[in-house]
């Protein structure tokens, strides 16, 4: 276990060295992502100039939900960046072979050997939104809230990783570079707004089938004191354990399929 922690840190420091080597392209690289996040925020802001609330949520509450969503997903994309082109890189191009000849858990190696730094700009925007919302909202944000926030983010990262992993594990069977990543990841857009605005079916899907709502929306309601979602907060740790386990089992199944059939 300590070996893996050490290795993870080693990979991380290698990646930081890489960023430092290309400082300029790092700064240029994060700009598009910041721009991309700005458009929806401006739109939310513009809309609230015309109306006082959306589905009972005020401007600052929506900002808080949206900001937490940005941070969670950006964190997920930073940590699981190597899954994004898994099918092409590891299966079609065969990089998985080079990992399977190392004395290391292959999934660990794939996750640890790639970070994306472009989302750091997004995280900053997300944090700005959260801070602004906390200042303007009549809520007190104490140490316990910080701990809870940390826990929710970690939990969210696990759920995000699990969903991502399931989406790419399909590649083992389809032998196609795409997997289901792009359509499934689109669904996360739903969870960046209050789930109460959607119809029942969509709410059910993003809560229990592809549980994006547990990554950002439900945790956000904890802080803005929306009592009606408390029961979901209780489900949160269970989702955070069960989904990663299912995803890992599926991954192992895919891997054994790979071992028996190759590419």
């Amino acid at each position: 276990m300590t070996h893996y922690v050490e290795l993870y840190l080693c990979f991380l420091s290698q990646h930081l060295k890489k960023i430092l080597e290309y400082k300029l392209s790092f700064f240029i690289g994060i700009i598009p992502f910041i721009l991309l996040q700005l458009a929806p925020i401006i739109i939310i802001w513009a809309v609230f100039e015309k109306i006082p609330h959306i589905a009972g949520f005020s401007f600052d509450e929506i900002l808080f939900i949206y900001g937490l969503g940005i941070v969670s997903y950006a964190l997920g994309r930073i940590l699981f960046s190597n899954l994004s082109d898994f099918g092409y890189r590891y299966i079609i191009k065969g990089e998985l072979d080079t990992i399977l000849v190392k004395p290391i858990n292959p999934l660990f190696y794939i996750l640890a050997s790639g970070f994306s730094e472009k989302e750091i700009g997004e995280i900053m925007i997300g944090i700005i939104l959260i801070v602004k919302a906390i200042i303007d909202l009549p809520i007190h944000f104490g140490i316990l809230d910080f701990l809870a926030l940390g826990y929710f983010l970690i939990n969210g990262v696990f759920v995000y990783g699990a969903i991502n992993l399931m989406a790419i594990t399909v590649c083992f069977w389809t032998k196609d570079p795409r997997g289901l990543t792009s359509p499934i990841m689109r669904i996360q857009e739903f969870s960046q707004y209050p789930v109460t605005i959607y119809g029942k079916a969509i709410r059910f899907i993003i809560t229990w089938i592809i549980p994006f709502a547990f990554i950002s929306f439900f945790p956000a309601t904890f802080f803005i004191h929306r009592g009606e979602f408390t029961r979901y907060i209780f489900c949160l740790p269970i989702i955070g354990v069960i989904f990663p386990i299912i995803a890992y089992l599926l991954w192992l199944k895919g891997l054994s399929k790979y071992e028996s059939s190759g590419t």
């Binding site: 809309v47 857009e189 739903f190 707004y193 605005i197």
Partner: peptide, 21 residues
């Protein structure tokens, strides 16, 4: 599929917005 998903999101968002006015 991606476009449709995005469209459904904004559909519901605007639906919630137009309820007030």
């Amino acid at each position: 599929i991606g476009f449709l998903v995005s469209l459904i999101v904004v559909y519901y968002l605007w639906k919630a917005i137009f309820i007030t006015s």
